Deep mutational scan, measured.
Amino acid sequence: RDLEAFAERFKQRRIKLGVTQADVGSALANLKIPGVGSLSQSTICRFESLTLSHNNMIALKPILQAWLEEAE
């Protein structure tokens, strides 16, 4: 599925960039996405391991996609 593929790709890119889950969570606040502050390390972990609810995964995907584009 698309979400699973993105979560795996996100994790691989994050590791390759040398960024921790906690770093991603705090960096999201710097993107200044309306309504989005920082996220906890555990939320990033649960996204990568696909243990969040489907609706949460869908909500987080564009936010994490934006971070990934900014980081690369």
Rank of each mutant, 00 (worst) to 15 (best):
R1M: 06
R1T: 09
R1V: 11
R1L: 06
D2E: 11
D2V: 06
D2M: 06
D2S: 10
L3I: 15
L3N: 05
L3E: 03
L3S: 03
L3H: 06
L3R: 02
L3Y: 08
E4P: 06
E4G: 06
E4L: 09
E4C: 07
E4S: 10
E4V: 11
A5G: 07
A5V: 13
A5Q: 12
A7I: 12
A7L: 00
A7D: 02
A7R: 02
E8N: 14
E8V: 10
E8C: 06
R9C: 14
R9F: 06
R9E: 15
R9M: 15
R9A: 11
F10S: 00
F10T: 02
F10Q: 01
F10W: 01
F10M: 02
F10C: 01
F10A: 00
K11G: 02
K11P: 00
K11N: 00
K11S: 05
K11A: 06
Q12S: 09
Q12W: 07
Q12E: 13
Q12C: 01
Q12V: 08
Q12M: 09
Q12G: 05
Q12H: 14
R13W: 06
R13V: 14
R13H: 10
R13L: 08
R13M: 10
R14T: 02
R14G: 00
R14I: 03
R14Y: 03
I15N: 04
I15V: 05
I15S: 07
I15Q: 12
K16W: 05
K16M: 15
K16L: 12
K16A: 13
K16G: 13
K16F: 12
K16Y: 11
K16T: 13
L17S: 03
L17I: 13
G18P: 00
G18C: 02
G18M: 02
V19S: 11
V19Q: 13
V19Y: 15
V19L: 13
V19I: 09
T20M: 06
T20Q: 03
T20R: 04
T20P: 04
T20E: 06
T20W: 02
Q21C: 13
Q21E: 07
Q21R: 11
A22K: 11
A22I: 05
A22Y: 06
A22R: 10
A22P: 04
D23R: 08
V24W: 01
V24Q: 00
V24D: 02
V24Y: 00
G25K: 07
G25T: 15
S26H: 12
S26A: 15
S26Q: 12
S26I: 07
A27L: 07
A27F: 10
A27H: 09
L28V: 10
L28G: 02
A29T: 11
A29C: 10
A29H: 08
A29V: 08
A29D: 14
A29F: 03
A29W: 01
N30P: 10
N30I: 02
N30Y: 09
N30D: 12
N30T: 11
N30M: 04
N30C: 11
L31F: 13
L31H: 05
L31G: 03
L31I: 14
K32H: 09
K32I: 09
K32A: 10
I33Y: 10
I33C: 05
I33W: 05
I33H: 05
I33G: 10
P34D: 08
P34H: 11
P34K: 13
G35D: 06
G35P: 02
G35K: 05
G35S: 08
G35F: 11
V36T: 05
V36M: 08
V36F: 09
V36S: 09
V36N: 05
G37L: 08
G37S: 14
G37K: 08
S38N: 15
S38P: 12
S38L: 12
S38R: 13
S38Q: 12
S38D: 07
S38H: 15
L39P: 07
L39C: 09
L39T: 08
L39N: 03
L39V: 14
L39H: 01
S40V: 05
S40K: 13
S40Y: 02
S40N: 11
S40P: 09
S40L: 02
S40C: 10
Q41T: 15
Q41L: 07
Q41W: 12
Q41Y: 06
S42E: 15
S42R: 11
S42P: 05
T43E: 03
T43L: 12
T43G: 01
T43F: 07
I44Q: 00
I44W: 00
I44G: 00
I44L: 05
C45T: 09
C45K: 11
R46W: 03
R46Q: 15
R46F: 08
R46E: 09
R46L: 08
R46K: 14
R46C: 12
F47T: 00
F47H: 01
F47D: 01
F47A: 07
F47R: 01
F47Q: 03
F47W: 01
F47P: 01
E48L: 00
E48C: 00
E48T: 00
E48D: 01
S49E: 15
S49R: 14
S49G: 14
S49K: 15
S49V: 01
L50F: 11
L50N: 15
L50T: 10
T51A: 12
T51Y: 03
T51Q: 12
L52G: 02
S53D: 14
S53L: 02
S53Q: 11
S53M: 06
S53G: 11
S53E: 12
S53K: 02
H54S: 10
H54N: 10
H54M: 13
H54Y: 13
H54R: 15
N55E: 09
N55I: 08
N56C: 15
N56S: 15
N56Y: 07
N56G: 13
N56R: 10
N56K: 14
N56H: 15
N56Q: 15
M57C: 07
I58E: 07
I58R: 15
I58T: 08
I58V: 12
I58L: 14
I58A: 10
A59C: 05
A59Y: 13
A59L: 11
A59F: 04
A59M: 13
L60D: 03
L60C: 10
L60R: 03
L60H: 00
K61C: 13
K61E: 06
K61G: 04
K61Y: 08
K61V: 14
P62I: 03
P62S: 04
P62H: 08
P62A: 02
I63Y: 06
I63L: 08
I63R: 06
I63G: 05
L64F: 05
L64V: 07
L64W: 00
L64D: 03
L64S: 02
Q65H: 06
Q65S: 13
Q65F: 06
Q65D: 09
A66Y: 07
A66P: 04
A66W: 10
W67R: 02
W67S: 03
W67Q: 15
L68I: 14
L68Q: 11
L68R: 01
L68K: 04
L68G: 02
L68W: 03
E69A: 10
E69P: 00
E69G: 09
E69F: 07
E70Y: 13
E70C: 11
E70T: 08
A71I: 11
A71D: 03
A71G: 07
A71Y: 15
A71H: 08
A71E: 07
A71Q: 09
A71R: 14
E72V: 05
E72H: 05
